[in-house]
């Protein structure tokens, strides 16, 4: 049965290849929508298309499951997709991404902590506190660390946390006094996970909503639905830029890397590599933060960024020092079980 399906898939792929051969250079790109994809479009896709003449079609929701289904039938529609480190790790396990060798994309200049054999790091972003300046105006006490987020006595009001436990669990332990460097050591024991879950239980009554997309915490802060949020710095910045009364606390951050990934069997492999090389060049890395406050993945980009902009970015050398990098291996291994417990606690 399966082999017959695969044969059919071959036929489909062959037909697609024949059809594709005659067309002009093009590229299919998929990311996660919103301000993030908008920034990618403005900083990289549009100038790249202009420079090379390659026509780029954009899509959203490059879930690993979908990529797997495409590959199983050799009917891959996407060339380059963006994934966070957890999804990248899962995709690697499923064998849906192609290894990026040095002769494909030169990554010598990339921050070592962000490198991955299967992806080209496109930006660094952080999960941190965003708060309403209406509730906590300048001149009075303002929250800055994860401990402040959990301190409902000192900073009363509703909060919002992500519906997905990755970064939330880490923040919870840091708030409980675990040093950022020890977080995954603590989490490697059942007692450590219990400790994190207790923290979630503690904050739960003060959580007005559990956000699912990066714009939600910004909207909630803006509308006054919550006074404090754990969210992504770039999204908060976008809110601040559009005039919402929001400020970020940089005391603790959990940093994540975003990757450009090459889908196995991508129909436009050459064009895809061209885009990746374009995106990782220091000059273009410096461009990205013009459109969203996410940091470059290469230190070589910082000289090209002016001081004012630098302050908004999470990957400056000094901020990187206090940051905890999300451990995607940990999440790939323990994710489902932690999600189940995280859901269970919140469902009561």
């Amino acid at each position: 049965m399966k082999s017959r399906l695969q044969k059919l898939g071959c036929v489909v792929a062959l037909a697609a290849a024949v059809a594709g051969g005659a067309q002009a250079a093009e590229l299919n790109f998929a990311s996660w929508g919103g301000a993030y994809q908008g920034a990618i479009r403005d900083a990289w896709l549009k100038p790249f298309a202009k420079e090379t003449g390659i026509k780029i079609t954009e899509d959203t929701d490059p879930q690993v499951a979908k990529i797997k289904a495409m590959i199983d039938t050799k009917s891959v529609a996407w060339d380059v997709v963006t994934e966070n480190s957890a999804r990248l790790t899962r995709g690697i396990k499923l064998g849906v991404f192609e290894k990026i060798t040095a002769d494909m994309v030169d990554q010598k200049h990339v921050i070592p902590g962000a490198r991955n054999e299967y992806g080209v790091p496109s930006e660094i972003f952080s999960t941190l506190i965003g708060f309403s300046t209406k509730s906590f105006p300048a001149g009075k006490a303002q929250p800055s660390t994860f401990a402040d987020f959990w301190d409902v006595a000192k900073f009363p009001g509703k909060r919002t946390l992500q519906d997905d436990p990755a970064t939330v669990i880490e923040s919870a332990l840091i708030a409980d006094g675990v040093a950022p460097g020890d977080v995954y050591k603590v989490l490697s024991t059942p007692a450590g996970i219990d400790r994190a879950m207790k923290q979630i239980e503690k904050i739960k009554p003060h959580v007005a909503m559990w956000w699912k997309n990066g714009a939600e915490p910004v909207n909630a802060l803006g509308s006054g639905e919550v006074v404090m949020a754990l969210g992504w710095n770039g999204r908060f910045q976008a809110g601040i830029d559009s005039g919402l009364p929001i400020q970020m606390g940089w005391g603790n951050t959990v940093a994540q890397v975003g990757y450009f990934v090459l889908v196995k069997g991508a129909p436009h492999r050459e064009e895809a590599l061209k885009l990746m090389n374009y995106m990782i060049s220091p000059k273009n890395q410096a461009e990205f933060s013009k459109y969203i406050a996410y940091g470059p993945t290469t230190e070589a980009a910082f000289p090209l960024i002016d001081e004012a902009r630098k302050h908004r970015l999470p990957s400056t050398p000094e901020r990187m020092k206090s940051a905890l990098f999300l451990d995607s291996e940990f999440w790939e291994k323990n994710g489902p079980a932690i999600v189940e417990r995280y859901n269970q606690i919140r469902a009561r």
Binding site: W32, A35, T60, A77, N213, E216, N219
Partner: peptide
């Protein structure tokens, strides 16, 4: 998929990813 998504799907994406 992207090429043939319907209006409700696009609306869902407009609600679920980013308002």
């Amino acid at each position: 998929s992207i090429r043939n998504r319907t209006l409700p799907k696009l609306m869902y994406e407009g609600l679920a990813h980013d308002f």
